[in-house]
Design a protein around this nucleic acid. Structure first.
Length: 153
RNA sequence: ACUACAGACCGCUCUGUCGCCUUUCGGGGAGGAAAGUCCGGACAACACAGAGCGCCGCACCACCUAACGGGUGGAAUUCCCGGAGCAGUCCGGGGAUAUAGAGAGUGUCACAGAAAAUUACCGCCACGGGUCAAAAGCCCGGGGUAAGGGUGAAAACGUGCGGUAAGAGCGCACGCUGCAGCCGGGCAACCGGCGGCAGGGAUAAACCUUGCGGGUUGAAAUGCCACGCACACCUUGUUAUAUGCGUUGCUCGCGCAUCAUCCUUCGGGGUGGCAAGGGGGGUAGGCAGCGCAAAUCCUGCCGGGCGACCGGCGGGAUCAGACAAAUGACAGAGCCCCCGGCGCGAGCCGGGUGGACAGAAUCCGGCUUACAGGUCUGUAGUUUUU
RNA sequence: GGUCCCGUAGUUCAACGGAUAGAAUGGAGGUUUCCUAAACAUUAGAUAUGGGUUCGAUUCCCGUCGGGACUA
């Protein structure tokens, strides 16, 4: 059942900040992909957190029931206001991207056999592309995802 | 029937497969503007001892409304169109108006012009002096004068007659404008009439004056829970006609708070506590507020009002509630529109990355702005038929 | 969500409500040079937009459009 529920959305401000600070990125038109391992490794300044992200807030995620790749892989979508002025355009693009991810995320899980990731898709095309192009870009992104890199960031 | 304008309204529909948010597990899930955030409220927190100054907003009148800078109706001014008339003007229709005050004061009015507010350059006029014996003319002087001149956006009521040395509302007639009075109409703004007085520009979307209104801050308000760090540091005050806080711009006034101990040369100083400020540190999660019945929405009948709207008796509906932010994606069919072809025509066939503007964020009432296509009503024009 | 501010040449800034909107720099072509640079003179180029007040608006007022700042 290819759904896209609330647990699969990247909402933590901390993780997003870490994504931009130490994440890896590559291009897969019309997307720029930024990704990082969600459980933080040894940080350069050596003050690594003892707690993983599971006990972050009052309502912990039910991640203990299975360490599957799909359970902790979270996605955030960004469409810049610079190119799309009205909220209707941005919402429509985000919905199309989300739909494409929902239908093709099984392929991503097969690629990510080593562990989950947190990733953000940034829409960088200047025009409003139809769903077919966005779907093609999504497939290209999953094919280009660096499999070996995410184990040892 | 078509076209144009104005006003009001609608704002594509259905099915299937995958999904999203919410839920009391039945169900429910964007708009006329959800937008801009331009006004006004509800609601919430704090304050409530006032006075003065300041600041902000509004500005013809009446009414509607919870309130408004909104709406309705009217008045005045002004513009446009049509008609009548020789003309002054009158009648009808439509539009615009931040429409209190420029007889309270201050400022500004470039260029041009003599002069831009008590104006004398040219001109006109009498008088005195000179030139001369005298007059005219010319020159000089101090005056009178706003009729004539050109300039300018704007030049000190208009026309005519009288009057005068020349002139001037100086006087008169008619007219225009303003002011106060009386009479009549109107709730009022205002209008009409009568006789009286006055005739010194524009600008208040320049300062300002007058009248009225405004306590301040706004859902990131506010209350609660959880997690986490650091009172460790600095400054000021702590016996008083002082300091701090509040009164939410300022001043006065008012209210509240100001503890203990040690030393002392009696001026004060030290220590702890407290209060305020600075700096630094931590967290940026959850719940309520948040759509629970209300200035609610739809509708039937009756009544009042020119109208905005209001009142009464009924019926029905209230079921979006996200928070890196749901309400979608794809496919098919229909509807409407555009283009091409066929047909006298109703219509048929084919094509169209044709179906706008645009996405709730506490909630309402307005305003403004954007908008494909369509519907209805009214006005004007053209054509056809009767 | 709320509060507030700003739009002038390509860029950075000027301009009591008053003539043809000024300066620096950048652009273009020219002189000079064997060629550049520098220097010299020349030239083009703008009040975000739509209304209103006024004799006259970059300036004052209102509405749009665009940009920015602050606010737990």
């Amino acid at each position: 059942m290819p759904g896209f529920s609330r647990q699969e959305r990247l909402k933590s401000r901390k993780v997003i900040a870490r994504l931009f600070r130490e994440g890896h990125s590559f291009m897969a038109y019309p997307f720029r992909v930024v990704w990082v391992n969600p459980t933080p490794g040894p940080s350069p300044d050596g003050r690594g957190d003892a707690l993983p992200g599971a006990v972050r807030d009052g309502s912990p995620l039910p991640s203990g029931e299975g360490p599957g790749v799909g359970s902790c892989t979270q996605l955030a979508i960004s469409v810049p206001k610079r190119h799309f002025r009205t909220a209707v355009q941005r919402n429509r693009l985000k919905r199309r991207i989300r739909e494409a991810y929902r239908l093709h995320k099984a392929g991503l899980y097969e690629t990510l056999s080593g562990g989950p990731v947190s990733l953000m898709l940034m829409y960088i095309a200047k025009e409003e592309l139809p769903y077919r192009d966005i779907e093609a870009g999504m497939i290209k992104m999953i094919r280009k995802f660096p499999v070996s890199g995410h184990i040892n960031p």
